[in-house]
């Protein structure tokens, strides 16, 4: 009975001709008994950056975490509804969370490099997933990931120094490299620049735009300028509701809902 639902809901090609990579249907999340999200329906398109915006506490992070089941590790958190990754329900009991998270990677608000060397930070994921077999393969993956994260030039001579010895912006790019290293299909980013200065932020924004060619990206941000700069699609959350979703240009110039209008013009938030 779910099957019919799946097929109609996940029509492979949406209006723009771009494939839908992830699809949330009627997603609700509860912390203990408190409901944090109300029936969210959202499509995330392949090779696009989707930005989630909205005032603090409206459930952006909560929604992002449902997409790679990071809510599973939070005590008392429960969810209803369905999330499809390439037509497959990620909450299906047959799904292995470990493999899911290898396909849907995550970058956190505060840079959180492991207390290991830069090299080992990047090599960590490929190693635990058995993606590399020899030292040469590991070296290659580490270099490629750091290059894609735009960090290679800065760290290639100090790969064996601690990851925490880098600056905040470099640490965040290291975390992005670490996520890329397991070759995910989707990368979730929860306010990845909120702990960074404007220059580091600009670098990461540039990076996000480049990463779009290889990955699908969902980014939570509290900065509307950032959403406008990096994303193709924007979803506006308010008090646990998904108020409006659309092309970024349309959301920022011509929103349909007056709550969206109020938020982007700074009347509340």
């Amino acid at each position: 009975m779910l099957a019919t639902d799946t097929q109609t809901a996940a029509a492979p090609h949406a209006a723009h001709g771009k494939r839908v990579k992830m699809k949330a249907t009627e997603v609700e999340v509860y912390y203990s008994e408190k409901r944090a999200l109300n029936k969210i329906n959202l499509d995330v398109r392949e090779h696009e950056v989707t930005a989630l915006i909205g005032p603090s506490g409206c459930g952006k992070s909560t929604f992002l975490r449902t997409m790679n089941r990071m809510n599973d590790v939070i005590d008392g958190c429960r969810m209803a509804g369905k999330i499809l990754l390439d037509q497959q329900d990620i909450y299906d009991p047959n799904i292995d969370v470990v493999q899911l998270r290898a396909r849907v990677g995550m970058v956190f608000q505060k840079p959180n490099p492991f207390p290991k060397s830069i090299y080992d930070n990047v090599a960590y994921g490929p190693r635990i997933h058995g993606l590399v077999r020899s030292r040469e393969e590991t070296d290659a993956v580490v270099q490629k990931s750091l290059e894609r994260a735009g960090l290679w030039k800065e760290v290639k001579d100090r790969l064996h120094e601690g990851g925490t010895s880098l600056s905040g912006g470099q640490q965040q790019r290291l975390c992005i490299a670490r996520a890329i290293a397991v070759d995910p299909e989707v990368i979730l980013m929860d306010e990845p620049c909120s702990a960074l200065d404007p220059i580091a932020t600009a670098k990461i924004e540039e990076l996000i735009d480049e990463l779009r060619t290889n990955y699908t990206i969902v980014i939570v941000t509290h900065s509307m300028q950032q959403a406008a700069r990096v994303s193709q699609r924007t979803a506006f959350f308010h008090l646990g509701d998904l108020v409006e979703v659309g092309d970024t240009a349309q959301i920022f110039t011509n929103p349909n809902d007056e709550r969206t209008q109020g938020y982007i013009t700074g009347r509340f938030g």
């Binding site: 990071m70 590790v73 470990v98 995550m106 956190f108 994921g125 635990i128 670490r178 397991v182």
Partner: peptide
């Protein structure tokens, strides 16, 4: 906790997270 989340986010199991992070 952010380190544990980082490891889970990369697809570590609980024991990998504890042993390696």
């Amino acid at each position: 906790q952010s380190l544990r989340h980082g490891a889970y986010g990369l697809g570590s199991t609980k024991s990998e997270t504890i042993r390696q992070v």
